[in-house]
Design a binder for these strands. Sequence first.
DNA 1: TTGAAAGCGGTACCAG
DNA 2: CTGGTACCGCTTTCAA
Lengths: 335, 335
Amino acid sequence: MVLPSTAGTEPRKITINDVAKSAGVSRQTVSRALNDKDEIDVDTKQRVLDAARALGYRPSRFARGLVRQDTMTIGLVIPDLLNPFFTEVAAAALEAARARGWQVVVYDTGDRAEEELGTLQVISSQVDAVIGYFSCPESELEKFTRGMPVVLIGREQRTRFSAITIDGAEGVHAAVAHLVARGHTRIGMLDHHTRAEPSIRHEWFTTAARAHGVDPGLVVGANQTADGGGAALKAMLAAHPDVTAVFTFNDIIALGALREARRLGRNVPHELAVIGFDGLQLGALVEPPLTSVALDTRGLGALAIEQVARLLSGTEALAADELVVRAELRLSGSA
Amino acid sequence: MVLPSTAGTEPRKITINDVAKSAGVSRQTVSRALNDKDEIDVDTKQRVLDAARALGYRPSRFARGLVRQDTMTIGLVIPDLLNPFFTEVAAAALEAARARGWQVVVYDTGDRAEEELGTLQVISSQVDAVIGYFSCPESELEKFTRGMPVVLIGREQRTRFSAITIDGAEGVHAAVAHLVARGHTRIGMLDHHTRAEPSIRHEWFTTAARAHGVDPGLVVGANQTADGGGAALKAMLAAHPDVTAVFTFNDIIALGALREARRLGRNVPHELAVIGFDGLQLGALVEPPLTSVALDTRGLGALAIEQVARLLSGTEALAADELVVRAELRLSGSA
DNA sequence: TTGAAAGCGGTACCAG
DNA sequence: CTGGTACCGCTTTCAA
């Protein structure tokens, strides 16, 4: 929170008064010169501008913000900027925010709970609203956001906050249906295992599998990285050698599984079918291109900003059933 | 810049005075309660907190920032958040900034010059320093940053600003040497073609090729996307069917080329060797894994933040020759 | 423990 | 065209 002491060299902050004094005018005149007002003599203006430059003066954004209340800053909290899914969402949010002239401060929590709390602490006095993925308990969230608009993303539990939910039930059902139609009967799932509870994506899978008379019990946990996905596939095949298809928690895991399959010499999709979740652009780069239950990440980001706008303006906020992003099966080469 | 008018509903901003009145105390007491000072009666504190909550009060970050000058905000301007290279740099910068307790506002210019200017305009009154990729003329930069610390990244030309440069001469030399050692004599380059001038990476390639007695003239421009890389490879092979190896402007282009090679049925690396530039983590996901002239993106981000810190504190800034990130050949499967 | 007053660094609205 | 004055909303002395 506090700035590291800067070796005593700290050149006292130059204010508008210093410039005024140096140019021999009043601060209002300085203000006029700097803001390009026309009620000012050209020479005076030049003199002021010169003085300002000479002193290295820069107006305080706080003082300015205080008097002209026209800046909106949104905090975007994501667990991992290196995960393309979050990057895609962030890019969309940035774009939607820019369209409204808003700033976006990005916070990367590194998927660590402590960082989440630390971030929340800092953020609450830095932004006008928060959009984010949080795994911390709602009570903590509440504590730090004190009446600030908050839009959660991908939080499944019921919550007091606005939350954009992802509905993948149909998409996952379609994915399983597709696999079954291709003759697969032993379908595994590479779930994530970073959270305490089994994921809702896992529930969707279970439901879909049951609906198709497939054993839903072949589950292995995976870290949300490509390496994690590879390791999980290995574990899966070791535990259940008869598995011929896997559905994964997300595309990153799927890509890792794809790579591992290559290493193991299992042809995809013929000897092993892989279906991911998220629909990342990245999926198109590998061979075979990844089949995935795809999400509209752009829409997601835009929706979050839209809801923040409503919350902020007092306009009627979108209801929970309007804050849903549906995922749908996008067929490609890997299954 | 200006907030959209919000349907007249605009509930006048609640200030500390409102809370004070509502709780029947003075505003200093409110301040104490909210900032967890201990010189306050427990009951009073609770009463104030309740009142604040009831009114939905949130302190103005501007007013607070004005009086406690302890928040540093850095603007990070990048051309495309969806390009993993910039994401990696951004992630590193975010991390380094967080270590200092600084905020980072991310701006995505979409690689458009107009957006760059618009961003600069906005940014100048919103942040304390700027780190970024800019393609606009230095004069424009200067105009909008008025004495604010600026650290440029990847700008080759000489500049008045601090600039972190990328030195890939040796790395590219090593790449070409490697290809030549493998027997390649016809080596093409997929350069970018979004900028007016040929890239410095192209110059490195030319120099390295000449040094090895290889024709440096086989160049095709590519958009900085995977599709662009694919198209460029196609064009390259059409124009020069005898090319057996390509060096690309960056990894994204290389990945596209890799995919195109697969589509064309050309085995990599045996029938076509591919070497990228950047060393993205992403390169490890494809088959064969991408050989690349790799950059330390984390180091780059950290270096930028370090320089900003020095500029900001008046500590002696790093000289140009200390602001260099060297790229080196990282061998993998594609060449 | 609480309150009054003095800024923080600007901008806006008046006079002159 | 310029300067005086009154804030913006909050924190920090300093008294009470």
